[in-house]
Design a protein around this nucleic acid. Structure first.
Lengths: 228, 228
DNA sequence: TAGTGGTCTAGACCACTAA
DNA sequence: TAGTGGTCTAGACCACTAA
């Protein structure tokens, strides 16, 4: 499945925003510029920008142009837990298994802040606990390129070296895909708790992570008061 | 601001879906049909369908056509805990269906504060959204014994009459049991997001509720800062 | 008032997949 | 294999609004 031109444009812009190369408020090329740059019709470029606007990544204003949207913030209390620390607190054994690691750098269009992509499995008490896919903004945390991510999970490393100041969680239940089922040693279609988390340090995106938990092996717990 | 043709098409289809005239699973006209019907270019009709698909209202399958999907909902976790209010905020229709209600008193183990047990189904946009089981501490909120819980969900009543001061959430993914599957009109074993919530008023427990959400119909979203 | 977004046309070819 | 979705082109005109 080859991505179409508008999808390529969308991804290229998304990567620049996520990498922090284009910070909130900065100008995104207009559809006419992009059409010329990519050698495509203006409508094709427009489609990419419309999708980004719909996803809330950019804002489009007539006559003024398109701009990277500022992430909304809401002060709330919830703990973000590192799986290694959580397992230690529970008295469970923990092991991180790095499955894949690669650097995503420049695209055909030019310089791009590099991203680190990792995939791996968190094991607890000798059995797979969660399958994780992660993108890390190397421009924001370049030192992680030197870290040994086969020994320490990226999340553990980040917590120690690049704490987040803002985060967004999306929590859902998803049926295990064949790849997830294989990594988690469960049946395809079984119910996995899925957590998608984006974190920022100030205005700079730090990481985007998806964790699929093995069926029945994980629960999120939040305690809070109604009045703070 | 006059809506464009594709926007008119989108609204017309949305209205039919929301009104229940086109229930989930029913076929939506293809872009070629719509183009002929509205006397517009196929791309214009396609745009409307693409927007609806992106919003999760329809699903498009090659060769097969487009079909009404079960709409997804979003909640700000830790913020909105009443489904009736959440659906109202979303502009979705909402209905509570009380399935079971009984009072539990002493057990074989000894004296026990009386509890009210309820079971029911939350419906949104005409389809089951969540199956709920609840226990209420009658010693703490005796007045609820007089409430008409077939008209108003217990959670809605409690929010108005006995607001909590402390809460604990436990969030997991669970395979649908036969009973859940029946209540939610889904397949047994499919992935349901499950929320268990305990609330207190001061030190006194008020309620313990378990909500199982229909597969793919609900997502919890939380956005927050690490430092408040 | 000039630049940008918003929308549309009337075609076209390919990809996928259910019948 | 035929039907549907997915994407694209090379134009066009209008709407809005910041410079």
């Amino acid at each position: 499945m080859k991505p179409g031109i508008s999808e390529q444009i969308r991804r290229a812009i998304e990567a620049r925003i996520m990498s922090g190369e284009w910070p909130p408020g900065s100008r995104v090329p207009g559809d006419a510029d992009l059409a010329e740059q990519y050698g495509c019709a203006r409508m094709t470029a427009n489609k990419a920008l419309t999708a980004l606007a719909h996803a809330g990544l950019i804002e489009r204003r007539r006559r003024a142009g398109s701009f990277v949207a500022r992430p909304r913030s809401q002060a709330m209390v919830l703990e973000i837990t590192d799986l290694a620390a959580e397992m230690a607190a529970r008295g469970s054994s923990y092991r991180w298994e790095l499955v894949n690691r690669r650097t995503l750098s420049s695209t055909a269009l030019g310089a791009l802040a590099p991203l680190l992509e990792t995939e791996g499995v968190h094991h607890a008490d000798g059995a797979p606990l969660a399958f994780e896919h992660r993108l890390i903004n190397l421009a924001e945390v370049p030192v992680i390129a030197e870290a040994d991510l086969s020994r320490e999970a990226p999340g553990t490393w980040l917590l120690a070296h690049a704490p987040w100041t803002e985060a967004e969680h999306r929590i859902s239940a998803e049926a295990a895909t064949p790849a997830m089922a294989k990594a988690l040693a469960c049946s395809p279609g079984s119910a996995c708790l899925t957590v998608r988390r984006r974190t920022w340090r100030g205005a700079a995106p730090v990481t985007l992570v998806t964790q699929h938990f093995a069926p029945g092996r994980h629960e999120l717990v939040a305690r809070f008061g109604s009045k703070g």
